[in-house]
Amino acid sequence: MADRLFAWLMLGCAVLVVASLLWVLSDVLIEGFAHFSWSFLITEPVDAGRSGGIGPILISTLWILLIALAAALPLGLGVAIWLSEFAPRNSRFAVHTGITLDILAGVPSIVYGLFGNAFFSIYLGMGFSLLSGGLTLACMILPIFVRTCESGLRAVSDDWRKGALALGMTRSSAIWHILLPAARPAIVAGMVLGIGRATAETAALLFTSGYVDRMPESLLDSGRALAVHIYDLSMNVTGGDGAAYASALVLVVLIISLNTLAQSLVDNWFKRRLVVS
């Protein structure tokens, strides 16, 4: 009886989570579609964003994301490989690196925003720019990405490493051809977490990539990200709720499609690697 009750209780938890998620999503979908049209995606915002579209904002968002991923992914993968494959067990440097990453992963995004503003915008002289926003986001997603990839690599059975050694493979080619493809699900998970966090970020971007909603002409131009636009419309602009919901709808669809794209890219890339080798 108690066992049955327990099972029901757990089912209840699952239903509750799914239901609340569906509620949020349907709210965004219903309210968002009321204001959405295809021209909304390409036109410039008019009247502080109440009418018009989000064309330049969408472009700025994609640029910021591209910069963040281009900076964070190779670096993060490198750190993860070093931590799991090369760092001597129990070396103090490796342990401290791990602890630092865990602390950094928990730092609130506004702190990254202030750091990005002080370091990239002012100290390095990038000003309010897509570049400084993207690099700030890169710093922000790096810790999570490294930790996820590292645990994925560690989870690969040691038999595979020994097998590769026995076949006379060098360490680097074992990592490249065997360990990384084996850790693929973790790498995808890290990317998905990073993309999600970066695309939905507001606080870190307000003071780095800024508020300008013009079409960016270079990476050193200021550009408003989608999340900043939603924040401004719902908190600052009287009567901006409709456009805010439509932008939120675009943001949700964007995150879902980027995640799907990331997944298929990583899958393809590693599949080819396995076949070729």
Binding site: D47, A48, N236, V237
Partner: peptide, 15 residues
């Protein structure tokens, strides 16, 4: 020209 400051004025100044 760069303007920074009040979130109340910002949407107006942007227009």
């Amino acid at each position: 020209l760069t303007l920074t400051g009040s979130s109340t004025v910002a949407p107006l100044a942007a227009e």
